[in-house]
């Protein structure tokens, strides 16, 4: 089992190197001519104004929030799915209860309009 994950770790490290390699080649090959217009922010040809780092829109957060809760729900389904055939009806009932409670949450979010993009 440890060996499996050793492979994963090596893949991550070697992958980073391999993905970085073309950047090194570019650094060697590509021209570097710098002038102010080139390094300015692209805004469809209009002269850029202000910083982009000043956004405010809470809807993105609401979706992130609902996502986190349901993602956690999904992690409980994984071990359940694996042992489901062994445990049978009992496990099924437990999961029905679990999902019903969460469906209340979904229904609430739905009803409150948290899932609307207005």
């Amino acid at each position: 089992m440890l060996l499996d994950w050793l492979y994963v770790a090596v893949f991550a490290i070697v992958g980073l190197v391999l993905a970085g390699l073309p950047l090194v080649i570019v650094w060697l090959l590509a021209p570097r001519i710098d002038y102010p217009q080139k390094r300015s922010t692209y805004e469809s040809g209009v002269v850029p104004f202000g910083q982009a780092w000043a956004q405010f829109n809470i809807r993105y957060y609401i979706f992130g929030l609902v996502f986190v809760v349901f993602d956690v729900e999904v992690i409980y389904l994984y071990p359940w799915a694996v042992v489901f055939k062994d445990l049978g009806a009992f496990a099924f009932v437990e999961m029905v209860i679990f999902l019903t409670i969460l469906m209340v949450g979904l229904a609430y979010a739905w009803r409150k309009g948290a899932l609307e993009w207005v």
Binding site: V69, Y76, Y78, A81, D86, L87, I101, G105, A114
Partner: peptide, 30 residues
């Protein structure tokens, strides 16, 4: 499989209460 077995037998209550915690935090956060 071991985690699943434990969750659905000895820790069944924890399992169900977790869903309540998730529900409450979802509602609260919204």
């Amino acid at each position: 499989a071991a985690v699943g077995n434990a969750f659905l037998t000895s820790y069944a209550l924890v399992f169900e209460v977790t869903s309540l915690v998730l529900l409450v935090s979802l509602i609260g956060a919204i």
